[in-house]
Write a protein that binds this DNA or RNA. Structure first.
Lengths: 101, 101
DNA sequence: TATTCATATGAACCATATTTCATATATAAA
DNA sequence: TTTATATATGAAATATGGTTCATATGAATA
């Protein structure tokens, strides 16, 4: 239980959530992600490295590209839980919109 | 999907994880938590307010105490997923121990 | 209705994570 | 074997969130 926050830290970031959202559709190279998310390459590389460290994404080399894919086994059920949570508990309280303060 | 990171931000913090862990055992007042976690009162109040905003915990007034409880419906399955993830994907790579870098 | 107990709040300060930018590495193609 | 392409890395700058501390609020009791 003690180190969970390190895992969640990786999800507590809008860019990383965008990456996850994009990779839900299909596996992608860094370049594809830069285009899709209109984001700088090094920024993405940093984020992807971080996500990889927690096994939230996987990667494989393909020529000079590196293809990233989502760890669907962990992440999809987790997102389902959040969706359910949002619908059930965050109606008008808009908990997911409020700053964490 | 866009605001998920705000929810996760609340879990990306050692103190908040400790709070969750403590509330898993039983509902507690702020004072009980300060003793259990050996932590300052205002620190806990700030953290609890934040957790409440995302409906991760609930509260009820009881005399001059305020009793906090865990949203078990969302949080217990979520912790299960992480446990499974940890065992399956974070063996020797110790992803949950590495800094998110 | 003072006083004490329990908790919340605000703002300044501080720590940590993210962004940026310059550069390094690695692979393929010319 | 140089050049171009794709990605990674490091360090400084910046942003973001957490902690601290003093104080406010709110409820019970004397």
């Amino acid at each position: 239980m003690n180190k969970y926050y390190l895992f969640f830290g990786n999800l507590a970031n809008p860019l990383k959530i965008e990456i996850i959202s994009a990779l839900k559709e299909k596996d992608m190279s860094v370049l594809e992600l830069t285009k899709k998310l209109n984001t700088e390459q090094s920024k993405l590389s940093h984020a992807l490295t971080s996500l990889k460290h927690c096994s939230i994404v996987n990667d494989k080399k393909e020529g000079k590209k590196r293809i990233y894919s989502l760890n669907r086994e962990t992440i999809l059920p987790m997102l389902q839980i959040i969706d359910k949570h949002e619908h059930k508990f965050c109606g008008k309280c808009r908990a997911l919109e409020s700053r964490n303060k």
